[in-house]
Design a protein around this nucleic acid. Structure first.
Lengths: 214, 214
DNA sequence: ACCAGATTCTTACAGCGTAAGTTTGTCATG
DNA sequence: CATGACAAACTTACGCTGTAAGAATCTGGT
């Protein structure tokens, strides 16, 4: 009668289900709420049961970023210039990352060398190669663009979090913005109008142009 | 006679000293060894004593990255082209970050908007402006370069860590490298010879070139 | 001499990741 | 049907974490 399961009864746990629950929880309540006990609770299961499907919490977190990278689906293999390919890749990555802002600190501080990610890069390499680029050059560009996207998103995420922590900011920023850094204040004031951050596009296009002039 | 201090005896604690000890400890034993108790122990002091000088552990970590950014000293105001300025800025940042590899995960997942960092950017802005760039453009470029450096370093650090964790890698990578991602394998093989990563320079120069062409 | 404040240490608590062991369900085989 | 092997889930326990609250001690000004 009780809705609680008995001891050996299968609860239908899966690595996938666990990762999914963890991702949802992290997005809903932030990274620091992501404890094994809490995830288990989310699935109606004790913490230790999770260890049947993930080796450790670190492995679980690795799985999370893997999950996220997998979502950065390969653009459906359009036949275009390599510029177009890189642009597509960059924006695809950007889209996925800013769609999961709470996970970003994980993404940027964890090995990006999981099998899934390697496949992603392989696909992109494939595209660039068939678009006429030598392999070595293509990999260089891929690294450059990936690095830039990751960095940009990291800064974005950090800035977003900064606004939500009243504690250490309160005494430092407000009176400093205009007094001690006049140029910065001036530069940011004229910017504030634009839409969904044009800074990304600006830098990306600069890189693409720069790649061109060999 | 005992070398231990009594209760109210001054131990000469300073915010600076604490940050310095924490930084040294983190570099020596990694981020996960960085607990309040451990830091206190390093200074011959109990954990709670630290809270007289830092508000919380988070604040301490913020202080750490601030400390690190401060080390990225402003290049001594050479009068040069804005390209030279940006290059200098980028390599200065890069140098500092890869000099403290264990701290990188902190840097890339924490607000970069501390007063110190703002000053750093202000100085760079100053240089770019006097080099003839409109303020808005200068800030855009600064963001772009900073983002790229951070991203590049994040990937570097993550890759470096990946090699040291035998657990989850063992079954995944080795037989996948060549079988499932042939282009990637091929591309990396021809690269392996070069020195201190040329990928950074390649991308940076591309960006600079891209900035140039209006 | 004495008080006020600063500085440190002590104690305590709730929560963490996870190692080890226990209980229960499932299923192939005799 | 009975039995034993195996897997899934739960329980307990340990040492660690950050930090709130309070007691103890030293120091400098009166």
């Amino acid at each position: 009668m009780s809705s609680k399961r008995a001891r050996g009864q299968n609860a239908g746990l899966t690595r996938q289900a666990i990762l999914q629950a963890a991702l949802a929880l992290a997005e809903r309540e932030g990274l620091k709420a992501l404890s094994m006990r809490r995830i288990g609770q989310e699935l109606g299961v004790e913490a230790m049961s999770l260890y049947q499907h993930v080796a450790s919490k670190d492995a679980l977190l690795d799985g999370l970023v893997e999950q996220l990278f997998t979502q950065a689906a390969p653009p459906p293999a359009v036949a275009a210039s390599w510029q177009e390919c890189l642009r597509e890749y960059a924006y695809s990555l950007l889209r996925v990352l800013i769609a999961h802002p709470n996970i970003i600190p994980l993404v940027v501080s964890r090995p990006a060398i999981t099998p899934q990610n390697l496949h992603l890069m392989e696909d992109a390499l494939q595209m660039l190669h068939t678009a006429g680029l030598p392999l070595e050059r293509a990999l260089d560009m891929l690294y450059a663009v990936t690095g830039f996207v990751v960095g940009h998103v990291a800064i974005l995420a950090a800035g977003g979090r900064a606004r939500h922590t009243p504690a250490n900011r309160m005494q430092a920023i407000p009176d400093l913005d205009l007094r001690e850094t006049p140029l910065l204040a001036e530069a940011t004031r004229t910017r504030r109008s634009s839409g969904t951050d044009p800074r990304f596009g600006f830098a990306l296009e600069a890189m693409l142009r720069g790649f061109d002039t060999r």
